[in-house]
Design a protein around this nucleic acid. Structure first.
Length: 137
DNA sequence: GCCAACGTTGGC
DNA sequence: GCCAACGTTGGC
């Protein structure tokens, strides 16, 4: 299984909204590297849901429930979207500020490639963030 | 609101 | 194919 991190501005689409919707189309990605990651996602992969701009924290975990298919909002036909469903909220959101203070996360894309909206997360980072977020599984 | 970092566009 | 100009993202 692969782990991911997806960003959304809460004023555009928030974690709360996803929990209400039960499922959503992750559309609007217009960056090739992010799109490449979308295409690499497989059903059952897990992704952190990160609030950018406001909140600036990882707030929940979602699951990929439909693999990449054309994004109808893209007139050029080049970009794709996936469907995601919420799995569980982090009891304790993990903020960017916290992550930044820990040397182990220096190599994380969230820090290194701050503008990439869909990124991979290593298994090690995934586990640490889950633990910090209060998920003990 | 500002600005750094980065990506894209278009002229040459 | 280079690079300046411009647009966007996202932290602060």
């Amino acid at each position: 299984m692969q782990y991911w991190l997806m960003k959304s501005e809460p004023s555009v689409y928030s974690w709360d909204q996803l929990q209400k919707d039960k499922r959503t189309h992750w559309n609007g990605v217009r960056n090739y590297q992010a799109a490449h990651n979308l295409r690499a996602m497989r059903n059952g992969d897990r992704a952190f849901f990160y609030h950018s701009n406001e909140g600036m924290a990882i707030v929940g975990i979602c699951e990929i429930v439909k693999e990449a298919y054309p994004d109808p909002s893209d007139k050029t036909g080049k970009f794709v979207m996936v469907d995601v469903a919420p799995l569980k909220a982090l009891p304790e959101p993990v903020t960017l500020a916290t992550i930044k203070t820990l040397p182990k996360f220096k190599e994380m894309a969230l820090i290194r490639l701050s503008r990439l909206s869909v990124q991979t997360v290593s298994r090690e980072h995934w586990k640490m963030i889950c633990k910090m977020g209060g998920i003990t599984s």
